[in-house]
Amino acid sequence: MSHDLFPVSGDDLTRLHAALAARAQNDGLLDVAYRVFDSPVGPLLLAATPKGLVRVAYETEGFDSVLAALATKVSPRILLVPSRLDAVAVELEEYFAGERHEFDVPLDYALSSGFRQIVQRFLPRIGYGHTRSYKEVAELVGNPRAVRAVGTACATNPLPVVVPCHRVLRTDGSLGGYIGGLDAKTTLLSLEKAA
Rank of each mutant, 00 (worst) to 15 (best):
E59F: 02
E59K: 13
E61M: 13
E61I: 07
F63E: 09
F63G: 07
D64Y: 03
D64V: 03
S65M: 12
S65L: 14
S65D: 14
V66H: 05
V66S: 02
V66I: 11
L67D: 06
L67E: 07
L67C: 10
L67P: 03
A68S: 10
A68N: 09
A68I: 01
A69M: 12
A69G: 07
L70F: 06
A71F: 01
A71Y: 02
A71G: 15
T72H: 12
T72V: 11
K73F: 11
K73R: 15
V74A: 09
V74N: 08
S75I: 03
S75T: 07
S75P: 07
L79D: 02
L79I: 09
L79N: 03
L80D: 15
L80H: 15
V81K: 11
P82T: 06
P82C: 06
S83Y: 03
R84Y: 08
L85Q: 13
D86S: 12
D86R: 14
A87C: 04
A87N: 10
V88S: 07
V88E: 11
V88D: 06
A89W: 01
V90S: 06
V90E: 12
V90M: 07
V90R: 14
E91I: 11
E91T: 09
E93V: 03
E93H: 08
E93R: 13
A97L: 10
G98L: 07
E99I: 01
R100K: 14
R100I: 08
R100L: 15
R100W: 06
H101G: 09
E102Q: 14
E102F: 14
F103M: 05
F103V: 04
F103E: 01
D104P: 01
D104N: 14
V105Q: 12
V105L: 15
P106K: 14
P106R: 14
L107C: 08
D108A: 14
D108I: 12
Y109D: 04
Y109C: 05
A110W: 04
L111G: 05
S112N: 04
S112I: 03
S113Q: 08
S113M: 02
G114V: 04
F115E: 00
F115Y: 03
R116M: 06
R116Y: 06
Q117V: 05
I118N: 00
I118E: 03
V119K: 01
Q120K: 05
Q120M: 04
Q120H: 02
R121Y: 00
R121W: 00
R121E: 08
R121G: 05
R121P: 00
F122N: 02
